[in-house]
Design a protein around this nucleic acid. Sequence first.
DNA 1: TGAAAAATAGGAACGATTCGCAAGAATACT
DNA 2: AGTATTCTTGCGAATCGTTCCTATTTTTCA
Lengths: 140, 140
Amino acid sequence: MRASPPEKEPSRRNHSWQRQRLLELLRSTDSHPTAASLHAALRVDFPRLALGTVYRNLDVLVSEGEIEAVPSGEGVARYDGNPTPHHHFVCEHCGEIEDLELPLPRGLLTRLQRRHGLTPRRVRIDFYGLCRACSDPNPT
Amino acid sequence: MRASPPEKEPSRRNHSWQRQRLLELLRSTDSHPTAASLHAALRVDFPRLALGTVYRNLDVLVSEGEIEAVPSGEGVARYDGNPTPHHHFVCEHCGEIEDLELPLPRGLLTRLQRRHGLTPRRVRIDFYGLCRACSDPNPT
DNA sequence: TGAAAAATAGGAACGATTCGCAAGAATACT
DNA sequence: AGTATTCTTGCGAATCGTTCCTATTTTTCA
Ligand SMILES: [Mn+2]
Ligand SMILES: [Mn+2]
Ligand SMILES: [Zn+2]
Ligand SMILES: [Zn+2]
Protein backbone atom coordinates (compact mmCIF):
# COMPACT_ATOMS: atom_id res chain seq x y z
CA MET A 1 0.00 0.00 0.00
CA ARG A 2 1.19 3.44 -0.90
CA ALA A 3 1.95 5.80 1.93
CA SER A 4 0.01 8.48 0.05
CA PRO A 5 1.05 11.63 1.89
CA PRO A 6 -2.10 13.74 1.62
CA GLU A 7 -0.51 17.03 0.64
CA LYS A 8 2.50 18.32 2.51
CA GLU A 9 5.14 16.85 4.74
CA PRO A 10 4.63 17.39 8.44
CA SER A 11 7.58 19.04 10.12
CA ARG A 12 9.06 15.81 11.30
CA ARG A 13 7.59 12.39 11.16
CA ASN A 14 7.91 10.24 14.18
CA HIS A 15 6.62 7.03 12.71
CA SER A 16 4.17 5.97 10.09
CA TRP A 17 1.81 8.39 8.41
CA GLN A 18 -1.11 6.78 10.10
CA ARG A 19 0.32 7.24 13.56
CA GLN A 20 1.46 10.76 12.79
CA ARG A 21 -1.96 11.85 11.67
CA LEU A 22 -3.62 10.10 14.56
CA LEU A 23 -1.55 12.11 16.99
CA GLU A 24 -2.20 15.35 15.12
CA LEU A 25 -5.91 14.66 15.13
CA LEU A 26 -5.96 14.01 18.84
CA ARG A 27 -3.96 17.13 19.56
CA SER A 28 -6.20 19.27 17.41
CA THR A 29 -9.32 18.72 19.46
CA ASP A 30 -10.30 19.23 23.05
CA SER A 31 -12.90 16.53 22.84
CA HIS A 32 -12.09 13.02 23.95
CA PRO A 33 -12.71 10.79 20.97
CA THR A 34 -13.20 7.07 20.89
CA ALA A 35 -11.10 4.76 18.77
CA ALA A 36 -14.04 4.31 16.45
CA SER A 37 -14.56 8.01 15.87
CA LEU A 38 -10.85 8.53 15.27
CA HIS A 39 -10.96 5.67 12.82
CA ALA A 40 -13.87 7.22 10.99
CA ALA A 41 -12.17 10.60 10.82
CA LEU A 42 -8.87 9.19 9.56
CA ARG A 43 -10.64 7.09 6.96
CA VAL A 44 -10.99 10.22 4.89
CA ASP A 45 -7.26 10.34 4.31
CA PHE A 46 -6.53 6.65 4.73
CA PRO A 47 -9.46 4.79 3.21
CA ARG A 48 -7.96 1.42 4.05
CA LEU A 49 -7.00 2.27 7.62
CA ALA A 50 -7.87 -0.65 9.85
CA LEU A 51 -9.52 -0.18 13.20
CA GLY A 52 -6.95 -2.50 14.69
CA THR A 53 -4.23 -0.12 13.52
CA VAL A 54 -5.93 2.72 15.33
CA TYR A 55 -5.99 0.72 18.54
CA ARG A 56 -2.40 -0.37 18.10
CA ASN A 57 -1.19 3.16 17.54
CA LEU A 58 -3.26 4.54 20.37
CA ASP A 59 -1.52 2.06 22.64
CA VAL A 60 1.86 3.12 21.31
CA LEU A 61 1.11 6.80 21.80
CA VAL A 62 -0.16 6.16 25.30
CA SER A 63 2.95 4.25 26.27
CA GLU A 64 5.05 7.03 24.77
CA GLY A 65 3.20 9.49 26.97
CA GLU A 66 2.00 11.48 23.98
CA ILE A 67 -1.65 10.93 24.73
CA GLU A 68 -3.70 9.53 27.53
CA ALA A 69 -6.46 6.97 27.79
CA VAL A 70 -9.53 8.15 29.61
CA PRO A 71 -11.57 5.24 30.89
CA SER A 72 -15.13 6.42 30.60
CA GLY A 73 -16.83 3.63 32.44
CA GLU A 74 -19.38 3.23 29.69
CA GLY A 75 -17.73 0.41 27.86
CA VAL A 76 -15.86 2.54 25.35
CA ALA A 77 -12.43 3.98 25.99
CA ARG A 78 -11.81 7.60 25.18
CA TYR A 79 -8.52 9.21 24.35
CA ASP A 80 -7.08 12.53 25.35
CA GLY A 81 -4.57 14.40 23.23
CA ASN A 82 -3.55 16.43 26.23
CA PRO A 83 -1.17 14.42 28.43
CA THR A 84 -0.86 17.29 30.90
CA PRO A 85 -2.42 16.45 34.27
CA HIS A 86 -5.91 17.84 34.38
CA HIS A 87 -9.35 16.82 35.48
CA HIS A 88 -12.69 16.28 33.81
CA PHE A 89 -16.31 17.13 34.02
CA VAL A 90 -18.51 14.44 32.53
CA CYS A 91 -22.01 15.36 31.47
CA GLU A 92 -24.43 12.70 32.55
CA HIS A 93 -26.84 13.67 29.83
CA CYS A 94 -24.90 14.17 26.61
CA GLY A 95 -21.70 12.40 27.60
CA GLU A 96 -19.47 15.36 26.86
CA ILE A 97 -16.15 15.35 28.68
CA GLU A 98 -14.90 18.81 29.50
CA ASP A 99 -11.37 19.64 30.55
CA LEU A 100 -11.01 21.39 33.85
CA GLU A 101 -8.34 23.72 34.99
CA LEU A 102 -8.26 23.09 38.68
CA PRO A 103 -5.23 22.89 40.91
CA LEU A 104 -5.12 19.76 43.02
CA PRO A 105 -5.64 20.76 46.63
CA ARG A 106 -2.37 20.15 48.36
CA GLY A 107 -4.11 19.11 51.54
CA LEU A 108 -5.51 16.05 49.82
CA LEU A 109 -2.15 14.44 49.26
CA THR A 110 -0.81 15.18 52.68
CA ARG A 111 -4.00 13.86 54.26
CA LEU A 112 -3.78 10.74 52.16
CA GLN A 113 -0.24 10.28 53.32
CA ARG A 114 -1.00 10.91 56.95
CA ARG A 115 -4.25 9.03 57.27
CA HIS A 116 -3.53 6.11 54.99
CA GLY A 117 0.20 6.06 54.54
CA LEU A 118 -0.21 6.13 50.78
CA THR A 119 1.75 8.09 48.23
CA PRO A 120 -0.03 8.19 44.88
CA ARG A 121 1.80 8.55 41.64
CA ARG A 122 -1.21 10.02 40.00
CA VAL A 123 -4.62 11.44 40.86
CA ARG A 124 -7.73 11.43 38.82
CA ILE A 125 -10.73 13.58 39.56
CA ASP A 126 -13.95 13.32 37.63
CA PHE A 127 -16.96 15.47 38.25
CA TYR A 128 -20.34 14.23 37.10
CA GLY A 129 -23.36 16.33 36.42
CA LEU A 130 -25.04 18.31 33.71
CA CYS A 131 -22.95 20.46 31.42
CA ARG A 132 -24.02 24.03 30.85
CA ALA A 133 -25.75 23.16 27.60
CA CYS A 134 -27.71 20.28 29.07
CA SER A 135 -28.72 22.06 32.25
CA ASP A 136 -29.87 25.08 30.33
CA PRO A 137 -33.60 25.79 30.43
CA ASN A 138 -33.87 25.56 26.69
CA PRO A 139 -37.18 23.95 25.69
CA THR A 140 -36.24 22.85 22.19
CA MET B 1 -36.30 -24.05 40.77
CA ARG B 2 -36.61 -24.34 44.53
CA ALA B 3 -35.84 -21.29 46.56
CA SER B 4 -33.74 -23.51 48.83
CA PRO B 5 -33.16 -21.26 51.83
CA PRO B 6 -29.69 -22.27 53.00
CA GLU B 7 -30.35 -22.33 56.71
CA LYS B 8 -32.16 -19.44 58.37
CA GLU B 9 -34.36 -16.65 57.21
CA PRO B 10 -32.67 -13.29 56.93
CA SER B 11 -34.47 -10.58 58.86
CA ARG B 12 -36.45 -9.42 55.89
CA ARG B 13 -36.15 -10.44 52.36
CA ASN B 14 -36.25 -7.72 49.80
CA HIS B 15 -36.48 -9.93 46.78
CA SER B 16 -35.21 -13.28 45.68
CA TRP B 17 -32.71 -15.29 47.65
CA GLN B 18 -30.14 -14.77 44.99
CA ARG B 19 -30.39 -11.03 45.12
CA GLN B 20 -30.54 -11.01 48.90
CA ARG B 21 -27.36 -13.02 49.23
CA LEU B 22 -25.63 -11.00 46.57
CA LEU B 23 -26.25 -7.84 48.55
CA GLU B 24 -25.13 -9.47 51.80
CA LEU B 25 -21.98 -10.67 50.14
CA LEU B 26 -21.15 -7.25 48.78
CA ARG B 27 -21.81 -5.63 52.13
CA SER B 28 -19.66 -8.12 53.96
CA THR B 29 -16.44 -7.22 52.22
CA ASP B 30 -14.45 -4.07 51.73
CA SER B 31 -12.97 -5.38 48.53
CA HIS B 32 -14.51 -4.44 45.22
CA PRO B 33 -15.44 -7.70 43.53
CA THR B 34 -16.19 -8.33 39.90
CA ALA B 35 -19.40 -9.91 38.71
CA ALA B 36 -17.47 -13.07 37.93
CA SER B 37 -15.99 -13.39 41.41
CA LEU B 38 -19.36 -12.75 42.99
CA HIS B 39 -20.82 -15.40 40.74
CA ALA B 40 -18.14 -17.87 41.78
CA ALA B 41 -18.70 -17.15 45.46
CA LEU B 42 -22.46 -17.46 45.25
CA ARG B 43 -22.21 -20.68 43.31
CA VAL B 44 -21.43 -22.42 46.56
CA ASP B 45 -24.94 -21.78 47.80
CA PHE B 46 -26.66 -21.57 44.44
CA PRO B 47 -24.99 -24.08 42.18
CA ARG B 48 -27.20 -23.19 39.24
CA LEU B 49 -26.86 -19.44 39.61
CA ALA B 50 -26.40 -17.93 36.20
CA LEU B 51 -23.86 -15.22 35.54
CA GLY B 52 -26.53 -13.27 33.73
CA THR B 53 -28.58 -13.27 36.91
CA VAL B 54 -25.68 -11.79 38.81
CA TYR B 55 -25.38 -8.99 36.29
CA ARG B 56 -29.11 -8.42 36.30
CA ASN B 57 -29.25 -8.20 40.08
CA LEU B 58 -26.20 -6.01 40.27
CA ASP B 59 -27.97 -3.60 37.97
CA VAL B 60 -31.07 -3.69 40.13
CA LEU B 61 -29.11 -3.06 43.30
CA VAL B 62 -27.22 -0.22 41.68
CA SER B 63 -30.40 1.46 40.54
CA GLU B 64 -31.83 0.99 44.01
CA GLY B 65 -28.81 2.77 45.40
CA GLU B 66 -27.84 -0.21 47.53
CA ILE B 67 -24.50 -0.69 45.88
CA GLU B 68 -22.32 1.17 43.45
CA ALA B 69 -20.55 0.27 40.26
CA VAL B 70 -16.89 1.16 40.20
CA PRO B 71 -15.57 1.41 36.65
CA SER B 72 -12.04 0.14 36.88
CA GLY B 73 -10.85 1.06 33.44
CA GLU B 74 -9.44 -2.39 32.92
CA GLY B 75 -12.30 -3.90 31.04
CA VAL B 76 -14.03 -5.43 34.05
CA ALA B 77 -16.51 -3.60 36.21
CA ARG B 78 -16.14 -3.80 39.95
CA TYR B 79 -18.88 -3.37 42.51
CA ASP B 80 -18.88 -1.60 45.82
CA GLY B 81 -21.13 -2.65 48.68
CA ASN B 82 -20.65 0.74 50.27
CA PRO B 83 -22.87 3.32 48.60
CA THR B 84 -21.62 6.06 50.89
CA PRO B 85 -19.56 8.67 49.02
CA HIS B 86 -15.90 7.86 49.38
CA HIS B 87 -12.80 7.72 47.27
CA HIS B 88 -10.36 5.04 46.23
CA PHE B 89 -6.72 4.22 46.01
CA VAL B 90 -5.96 1.83 43.20
CA CYS B 91 -2.75 -0.15 43.35
CA GLU B 92 -1.07 -0.19 39.98
CA HIS B 93 0.72 -3.39 40.80
CA CYS B 94 -1.74 -5.77 42.44
CA GLY B 95 -4.95 -4.04 41.40
CA GLU B 96 -6.28 -3.73 44.93
CA ILE B 97 -8.82 -0.97 45.45
CA GLU B 98 -8.67 0.58 48.86
CA ASP B 99 -11.37 2.74 50.38
CA LEU B 100 -10.29 6.16 51.49
CA GLU B 101 -11.71 8.33 54.15
CA LEU B 102 -11.01 11.78 52.86
CA PRO B 103 -13.24 14.80 53.02
CA LEU B 104 -13.74 16.50 49.70
CA PRO B 105 -12.01 19.87 49.82
CA ARG B 106 -14.70 22.47 49.73
CA GLY B 107 -12.57 24.79 47.67
CA LEU B 108 -12.71 22.40 44.77
CA LEU B 109 -16.44 22.73 44.25
CA THR B 110 -16.52 26.48 44.63
CA ARG B 111 -13.61 26.84 42.24
CA LEU B 112 -15.35 24.57 39.75
CA GLN B 113 -18.43 26.72 40.03
CA ARG B 114 -16.57 29.97 39.70
CA ARG B 115 -14.09 29.07 37.00
CA HIS B 116 -16.26 26.81 34.89
CA GLY B 117 -19.79 27.53 35.93
CA LEU B 118 -20.41 23.88 36.61
CA THR B 119 -22.26 22.27 39.49
CA PRO B 120 -21.48 18.59 39.77
CA ARG B 121 -23.90 16.13 41.21
CA ARG B 122 -21.13 13.80 42.14
CA VAL B 123 -17.36 13.72 42.40
CA ARG B 124 -15.07 10.82 41.97
CA ILE B 125 -11.46 10.81 43.07
CA ASP B 126 -9.12 7.95 42.34
CA PHE B 127 -5.53 7.82 43.44
CA TYR B 128 -3.14 5.56 41.60
CA GLY B 129 0.10 4.22 42.92
CA LEU B 130 1.53 1.36 44.90
CA CYS B 131 -0.31 0.08 47.91
CA ARG B 132 1.62 -0.39 51.12
CA ALA B 133 2.10 -4.09 50.50
CA CYS B 134 3.39 -3.62 46.97
CA SER B 135 5.68 -0.70 47.73
CA ASP B 136 7.18 -2.49 50.68
CA PRO B 137 10.89 -3.29 50.39
CA ASN B 138 10.21 -6.96 50.73
CA PRO B 139 12.73 -8.99 48.68
CA THR B 140 10.78 -12.21 48.36
C1' DT C 1 20.36 -0.75 -2.95
C1' DG C 2 19.32 -4.56 -0.01
C1' DA C 3 18.42 -6.72 4.06
C1' DA C 4 16.26 -6.34 8.61
C1' DA C 5 12.94 -4.15 11.48
C1' DA C 6 8.63 -1.90 12.06
C1' DA C 7 3.96 -1.24 10.76
C1' DT C 8 -0.24 -2.30 8.24
C1' DA C 9 -4.83 -4.37 6.55
C1' DG C 10 -7.84 -7.75 7.19
C1' DG C 11 -10.13 -10.91 9.57
C1' DA C 12 -10.63 -14.22 13.23
C1' DA C 13 -10.77 -14.62 18.14
C1' DC C 14 -11.84 -13.05 22.79
C1' DG C 15 -14.03 -11.58 26.95
C1' DA C 16 -17.26 -8.93 29.36
C1' DT C 17 -21.86 -7.76 29.26
C1' DT C 18 -26.59 -7.87 27.43
C1' DC C 19 -30.77 -10.03 25.40
C1' DG C 20 -34.56 -13.14 24.47
C1' DC C 21 -37.28 -16.49 26.08
C1' DA C 22 -39.57 -20.34 28.16
C1' DA C 23 -40.00 -22.17 32.78
C1' DG C 24 -40.16 -21.29 37.90
C1' DA C 25 -41.45 -18.65 42.08
C1' DA C 26 -43.73 -15.03 44.52
C1' DT C 27 -47.78 -12.21 45.31
C1' DA C 28 -52.44 -10.68 44.94
C1' DC C 29 -57.19 -11.59 44.62
C1' DT C 30 -61.04 -14.24 44.74
C1' DA D 1 -57.08 -23.42 47.93
C1' DG D 2 -57.16 -21.84 42.99
C1' DT D 3 -55.84 -18.84 39.67
C1' DA D 4 -54.22 -14.82 37.30
C1' DT D 5 -50.52 -11.46 37.43
C1' DT D 6 -46.02 -10.08 38.09
C1' DC D 7 -41.38 -10.83 39.20
C1' DT D 8 -37.10 -13.85 38.50
C1' DT D 9 -34.48 -17.18 37.00
C1' DG D 10 -31.30 -20.17 34.02
C1' DC D 11 -29.68 -20.90 29.71
C1' DG D 12 -27.88 -19.89 25.38
C1' DA D 13 -27.33 -16.78 21.72
C1' DA D 14 -26.00 -12.28 20.43
C1' DT D 15 -23.40 -7.81 20.87
C1' DC D 16 -19.65 -5.06 20.93
C1' DG D 17 -15.26 -3.14 22.09
C1' DT D 18 -10.78 -4.68 21.92
C1' DT D 19 -6.94 -7.83 21.01
C1' DC D 20 -4.48 -11.25 18.25
C1' DC D 21 -2.62 -13.48 14.18
C1' DT D 22 -0.45 -13.42 9.78
C1' DA D 23 0.90 -12.45 5.25
C1' DT D 24 2.11 -8.26 3.00
C1' DT D 25 3.87 -3.54 2.79
C1' DT D 26 6.75 0.38 4.45
C1' DT D 27 10.45 2.29 6.71
C1' DT D 28 14.99 2.30 8.42
C1' DC D 29 19.71 2.35 7.83
C1' DA D 30 24.10 0.09 6.89
MN1 LIG E 1 -8.92 15.96 28.91
MN1 LIG F 1 -15.18 1.55 47.88
ZN1 LIG G 1 -24.40 17.75 28.35
ZN1 LIG H 1 -0.63 -3.56 45.60
